[in-house]
Design a protein around this nucleic acid. Structure first.
Lengths: 158, 158
DNA sequence: TATTGTTATACTCTATAACTATA
DNA sequence: TATAGTTATAGAGTATAACAATA
């Protein structure tokens, strides 16, 4: 970014917000942007019959074979019960397997199957392409700053 | 930010993702961060009996008296049908009114009542304080870059 | 014919309590 | 007693089609 931009006056096109209000609408801008990314992602993943959550779970399992459900739930920031149905779907489609851990028979080691890895590879390629489209015109430094800001916000959670 | 950070290796704490995968997970980081902001916002707004959507609608109506529902829906990036129940709730609590437009009797001019403006002022103050907490340690330039990146992404939508 | 707001509906995501089996 | 995964369930957000009133 060349320089710090002056405080903007409008949001979502033509609707104005006062300066005082703007100071409390960072979450609002993030929501708008997240909506854009989410809509795009839904369309991009449709040909693979994946949703945002099933996609993310599959990617993380492919990259972390042997992961446990509780670890995956934490990484995805979803509650354990909500992860169950996501994994049920992936398992039903033979994209992942749940292997009992020998060291702790309460837990599962999550692994992707060959077809899971293949689907993941194709989906990641498609998503990368679409994300690049959404990020066009934004330089690598600004992208890094934006990611870092998001990580900081996450770290600042109570 | 001091300098461009090297490509990170972990997400959500200890779970690793490969470089190739990371290139397609910007949406994922944004989702995690948005979850943090949303959870915080839900807690912050609870004392005012507001949710993220009712809060945003109220703020935008207070700042834009006479706004029409279709304009508000576009500004909030929600579908028209979903806005109806949000406004029903605000109207039932006498925080806003729907005035028929004389120039176009199909549409409503949305206005906040006195108590709506009062509640809005208190809620904005509380949300500002909480957002400042989440943004602590992040300099004004980086904040501006992050906001600008999000606006660009939004503008790049198909 | 097109637009504003509405109703109805379905799907997804999120969150909590209570259960089972193992530790 | 505590933990991993599960079931059931409720609430909230998102998306689409179809309708009445008005333009």
């Amino acid at each position: 970014m060349k320089k710090t931009a002056p405080e903007p006056e409008t949001v979502g096109g033509t609707v104005r917000v006062s300066d005082k209000t703007l100071r409390s609408l960072h979450g609002y801008q993030m929501k708008r942007t997240f909506n854009v990314i989410q809509s795009d992602l839904i369309q991009t993943l449709k040909p693979f019959d994946l949703r945002m959550l099933t996609y993310t779970a599959l990617v993380l399992i492919v990259d972390n074979p042997g992961l446990r459900q509780s670890q995956l739930a934490e990484a995805m920031d979803v509650e354990r019960p909500n992860l169950v149905v996501i994994l049920d779907e992936l398992e039903r489609r033979d994209l992942i397997v749940r292997d009992r851990l020998k060291t702790d028979r309460r837990a599962y080691a999550l692994k992707a199957t060959l077809s899971g890895r293949r689907l993941c590879e194709k989906a990641v390629a498609a998503v990368s392409k679409h994300e690049e489209h959404l990020l066009r015109g934004i330089g690598p430094e600004d992208r890094a700053v934006a990611i870092e800001v998001m990580r900081r916000i996450e770290a600042n959670r109570r």
